[in-house]
Design a protein around this nucleic acid. Sequence first.
RNA 1: GGUCCCAUCGUCUAGUGGUUAGGACGCCGGCCUCUCACGCCGGUAACCCGGGUUCGAAUCCCGGUGGGAUCACCA
Length: 463
Amino acid sequence: MKPVVTRFPPSPTGFLHIGGARTALFNWLYARKTGGKFILRIEDTDEDRSTKESVDAILESLEWLGIDWDEGPYFQTQRKEIHDRYIEKLVKDGHAYYCACTPEEVNDMREQARTRGLKPMYNGRCRKRGLSNAPGTVVRLKTPGSGATVVQDIVKGDTAFQNAEIDDFIIRRSDGSAMYNLAVVVDDLTMGVNVIIRGDDHLINTPKQILIYQALGADLPVFGHVPMVLGPDKARLSKRHGAMSVSEYRDMGYLPDAVINYLVRLGWSHGDQEFFTRKELIEKFDLNHLGRSAGMFDIGRMTALNAKHIQAKPAAELVSPLLPHLKTLGIEAADDLFTRQVVETLQPRSRTLKDMAAAARFYYVDAPEMDEKAVAKFLTPEVCDMLNQAADAIDAVSEYTQPALEEVFKKIMADFNLGFGKIAQPLRVAVTGTTVSPGIFEMLLVLGKDRTVQRIRRAARLA
RNA sequence: GGUCCCAUCGUCUAGUGGUUAGGACGCCGGCCUCUCACGCCGGUAACCCGGGUUCGAAUCCCGGUGGGAUCACCA
């Protein structure tokens, strides 16, 4: 058994988007699962649109997702000599030829075919002219013209394309650069890529690529064309659907593990299982359970998964990814015990790290901002004495622990003849400024005795 | 328009000839409870349509409809 070699070949014309991340993921997972190799190759032959910034952004997003590569990044533009060598071999072997037809002439051919109700194609005029390489000529592949080329696809099954539908397409431009189909095949071939998982928008290119493999006398890789990711309007996901770059989700407070989990699950299944750790994904991913139909990107589902991943992780692992979100709110927190405890109290009630940062705010500010409605409702004159007594009693405990606090509250409940809820809620508002927070004990304990007492006294003055 | 792909609850999906069509997100109830969550329990909701094949089709075949992709000296 030859080891599996997969690859991800983004064009650096923008950020890494959700759809691209998903195909990268499928290839990466399969390589990792089988102990094979995963190659990163930048397809930058469209020099007008390719930018260095895009390359950097893509690499950064892949790294953030935890998708690492064993080889590369290779750059297609740096492989011109290799492409040339193969193109020349194709010409020498009679599988390709030089063509001097101008774009205008080819357009005319297409137009004529169209008016006669035929498929617009290049008519193969230069095929037998025996032209040699001259400025302005392109190289075309000699295609069969009859019969069929079958794509054996592991997700779509066998798909036959009539060769009569495929004209002698260009493999090298007049400026000497290789066309996409030639470049991919040569790169994949020379890099030893033997499993290709990509979007099904490439399915139609595949017969052309197979023709090149065959002309080169090479073995075919395994193809798997996965369906596209759709936006909420069921149209292919694009910029106008709003956020779709991986880095935006990072900024919105999603965990890489959650993004990965969601993306893989969108188009692949393992029975009824929804939640996967990264390790499980590598263990369980396979090519047999890739779905054939397009899936809609549903941020709600990803958010739900994110909440589960936040809950499942040890608090310590959440601290450093949380820090930037706190900083956005103007909070300079440190990766310390305090923040770890803050995180622990917020884990079950945060769907994103952004939510968590917002909910954590009261822990860090000197005086929490008091919500007017909460103050009006709970910090009434009647609770003033109760608050003062609570502050004094808490201040007086020798050990600031949950049992000690429970004792304090018990006494207050008896002294003022109030239920627990009647004292907890005013205290919550006193300490956090709002009616929503983690459990009263865990929160007070994390906040610390001094700040707790100080905040209750301040609230008593407001009451 | 030609070619190709696809079609199970609103969404993601399980299902490969015999199931009360299962799970998850969402939504709606309830329980738990110091708030909000978490968690737990229950409910809502689907096999695109029409023909076949078969004792029996969500599952197989054909046709339709709908959606998507692609038709470059872009990738």
